[in-house]
């Protein structure tokens, strides 16, 4: 798995934390919604950046009051055909004005990247088979669109 951000491959400084892996004092971690709900206090006391991971059935409104606590939100695509996270992404950006990293995780394939980008994702855990450098070209295959989406202050 490679992480694509701003059209380049970067080293991932975040850790996805399983629900039963103990929380250490240090390191940037991404936790599940469930863990956030049950260990909220503990997580807020940590001095490290925090990320949250939503399953495709977990909508933006479940965390809309808590956005200030997150530096990263990861939205899952359990299979590429499950398009719910596209809606979640747009709502986070456009309705709740979330400005931090919005990361696509799960079955994140080359030919979906551009749709994701346009919905407001800015980081991609690329799961395709081809080299990620090649997948980046998907972002520039098209530059003309009809919809005014993803209007969330990207420059």
């Amino acid at each position: 798995m490679s992480l694509i951000k701003n059209n380049i491959i970067i080293r991932d400084s975040w850790n996805h934390l399983d629900d039963d892996t103990p929380l250490s004092a240090e390191g940037k971690v991404i936790v599940s919604l469930k863990r956030w709900q049950s260990e909220r206090k503990l997580l807020m006391e940590r001095q490290e950046p925090l990320g949250i991971r939503l399953k495709s059935a977990e909508g933006a409104e479940m965390i809309s009051d808590d956005l200030a606590h997150f530096d990263l939100i990861a939205l899952e695509f359990p299979i590429f055909k499950d398009g719910r996270s596209y809606s979640t992404a747009r709502m986070l950006r456009e309705r709740y004005h979330y400005k931090g990293e919005l990361r696509a995780v799960g079955e994140v394939l080359r030919d979906q990247l551009q749709f994701m980008l346009r919905c407001g994702f800015d980081a991609f855990e690329y799961a395709g088979k081809t080299i990620p450098e090649e997948a980046i070209s998907a972002f520039v295959e098209m530059d003309k669109f009809y919809q005014t989406v993803g209007d969330w202050g990207r420059t």
């Binding site: 398009g83 809606s87 669109f145 009809y146 989406v149």
Partner: peptide, 9 residues
């Protein structure tokens, strides 16, 4: 056409 949110309904 190529609606980014509604292409995987």
């Amino acid at each position: 056409t190529l609606h980014p949110e509604f292409s995987f309904l």
